[in-house]
């Protein structure tokens, strides 16, 4: 990184010749900077420690069965994470399947095809939309999208596929209410599009124009320039951007809690309500105590592990590109 090539390393030894009050201040300042940096480290360690500590009784009680059990019974104090884990992964996967092609399409349009005057304002609007709080997407999903979705997608599709093998279970809504895993996935997709699209756009825009021009110069079509020049150049960082989007989708709470239906049922249909780890914590945590609280903390641990693996992958991928 640039740190190593920068010529100056604020001479640590320069203070050796100095005395007086400014030296004390200098030490204090350095200490404060160091302490603040360590604090950032401690916060992350603290987050991990606190949820492991909170979730430990649940892990100890249910053992590995906690992850594979689909029970969530507050009366009998039987808890398992399977439904929430599957809901989390399924909704995030749906979000990627829908959101990634949209984002890449938008990025391509903005960098390659859009008329010059439209590029800047549209790109800026998309970046701004990435700042809209997720609760807004959740409200829109529940009040605007879900009723339309129930009426125009769930009901007709359910009627169409009823009784068919495989699709008949996968796309059959027992109660077409509009909320469910697929709805959550779609809302998540809408939420991550501005984010992934603006990162991908930045990555594509960073590729030197010369590369693109020489490809056009030998007679490539826009598709060929994208396929053989730009995408290979930016692929690693685009995957990094997608992983960042995935990290968001996995850990998103508010947008999902509104529209997933919050049911603890393992259902084969993506039209049926379910729950994610984050939505379950948001729903139950304030009323929980005893083992339920521990089980929710343990769910938090699992979410921590899943998202952090994804985020570490994402950061490593985007980082490698910046060095190259």
């Amino acid at each position: 990184m640039t740190a190593l090539t920068q010529p100056i390393a604020l001479a640590r030894e320069s203070r050796a010749t100095r005395a007086g009050p400014s030296r004390g201040l200098d030490r204090l300042f350095r200490g404060a900077a160091y302490g603040s940096a360590i604090l950032v480290l401690l916060v992350l360690v603290g987050i991990l420690a606190s949820i492991i500590w909170g979730g430990w009784p649940a892990f100890a009680e249910f053992g590995p069965g906690f992850v594979t059990s689909s029970a969530w019974n507050i009366g009998t104090e039987q808890y398992g994470a399977l439904v929430a884990i599957i809901g989390t992964l399924a909704s995030a996967l749906i979000a990627l399947v829908i959101g990634v092609p949209l984002s890449i399409g938008i990025a391509i349009y903005l960098t390659q095809l859009a008329p010059g005057w439209a590029r800047k304002p549209v790109a800026m609007t998309i970046e701004l939309l990435a700042a809209v709080p997720s609760i807004i997407y959740g409200m829109w999903g529940l009040f605007v999208f879900a009723p339309l979705f129930a009426q125009f997608v769930q009901t007709p599709v359910s009627n169409l596929v009823e009784g068919m093998p495989i699709v008949g279970t996968l796309f059959y809504a027992r109660v077409p209410s509009g909320v469910g895993i697929l709805t959550a996935g779609i809302i998540l997709a809408i939420m991550i599009v501005p984010f992934v699209a603006s990162i991908t756009r930045d990555m594509l825009a960073q590729i030197p124009t010369v590369l693109r021009e020489s490809a056009f110069g030998i007679g490539c079509t826009t598709w060929e320039v994208m396929r053989h020049v730009l995408i290979p150049q930016a692929s690693v960082s685009i995957i990094g951007a997608i992983m960042l989007g995935l990290g968001r989708a996995l850990g998103e709470t508010m947008a999902v809690t509104f529209v997933i239906g919050n049911a603890n049922r393992l259902s084969a249909s993506i039209f049926d309500p379910g729950s994610t780890i984050a939505s379950r914590i948001a729903n139950e945590f304030n009323e929980a105590d005893g083992m339920q609280l521990n089980a929710l903390m343990a769910l938090g641990c699992i979410l921590f592990v899943i998202t952090f693996v994804v985020l570490i992958l994402a950061r490593t991928l985007t980082r490698r590109v910046k060095i190259a």
């Binding site: 950032v40 916060v43 992350l44 987050i47 949820i51 960042l244 990290g247 968001r248 996995l250 850990g251 998103e252 709470t253 984050a278 914590i281 948001a282 938090g300 979410l303 921590f304 998202t307 952090f308 985020l311 570490i312 994402a314 950061r315």
Partner: peptide, 9 residues
């Protein structure tokens, strides 16, 4: 990592 950690955690 902390920058994009799930806020619920």
């Amino acid at each position: 990592i902390l920058l994009s950690a799930p806020s619920i955690l």
